[in-house]
């Protein structure tokens, strides 16, 4: 029984997850604030990139403090529920939940200890925020029809949307990859520099 109790997340850890998710949420909001105004409308797509750069430390701290299956999933799911409540694209919630569970599974396979494994899990987790951007990249037909109704050349419009969407997607995927590696390594260095020394972890 003691064994099963150890594996399941306890009340104490639920509270820790809540506290860390709050800080993660604030970092997302900060990243959104920094990003949104650079190119109005368009740079909205790059909020996940800045978040992945900044949120590495909090992720590493949470994994170290709650090294159990569920912590990462709960953090990602809460962000997903938030997307739903503020009325973003509803699929964003599903994307956030599925990707964070995937990140959780990867970290679990590495027993939440292996540095490279946890970094890999953080890279995957960084993609969980991509949901609100999806309608912009994958469903331009929603708003491309209106352009055609206004008398634009259909083939031209489709070409434009396809190429801009493709480039945006490639830039987005690659830059999240790079930024999450930087953010994750920074986070792991911070863990070593501060938290391990202070005996918090």
């Amino acid at each position: 029984m003691l064994e099963s109790k150890k594996k399941k997340i306890q009340l104490k850890e639920h509270i820790s997850i809540g506290v860390y998710t709050a800080i993660y949420f604030i970092i997302c909001a900060l990243a959104a604030g920094l990003t949104v105004l650079i190119i109005p409308g368009y740079s909205y797509a790059f909020i996940p990139v800045i978040t992945s750069l900044l949120a590495g430390t909090i992720y590493m701290l949470m994994v170290a403090k709650v090294p159990k299956f569920g912590a990462i999933s709960i953090m990602g799911s809460i962000m997903g529920i938030f997307f739903l409540i503020v009325g973003r694209f509803p699929g964003a919630t599903v994307i956030a939940i599925v990707i964070s569970i995937l990140a959780d599974v990867i970290a679990y396979l590495f027993k939440y200890r292996n540095k490279v494994g946890v970094l890999f899990s953080y890279i995957i987790f960084s993609y969980s925020l991509i949901g609100p951007v999806v309608p912009m990249i994958f469903f331009p037909s929603f708003y491309q029809d209106q352009l055609i109704e206004q008398g634009r050349d259909a083939a031209y419009i489709e070409g434009v949307f396809q190429s801009v969407s493709e480039y945006t997607l490639i830039i987005l995927v690659v830059s999240i990859l790079i930024m999450s590696v930087i953010g994750g390594v920074f986070g792991q260095r911070m863990m070593k520099k501060h938290f391990e020394k202070a005996g918090i972890v």
Binding site: P140, F142, F161
Partner: peptide, 26 residues
């Protein structure tokens, strides 16, 4: 300009579709 068509139509058409959700959420 192609790039601006994309941005402007996202702000005026795409974002307009999401507006009821954002209103209800706010």
């Amino acid at each position: 300009s192609p790039f601006f068509i994309y941005i402007v139509s996202f702000i005026f058409n795409g974002f307009r579709l999401l507006l009821p959700g954002i209103i209800a959420g706010t």
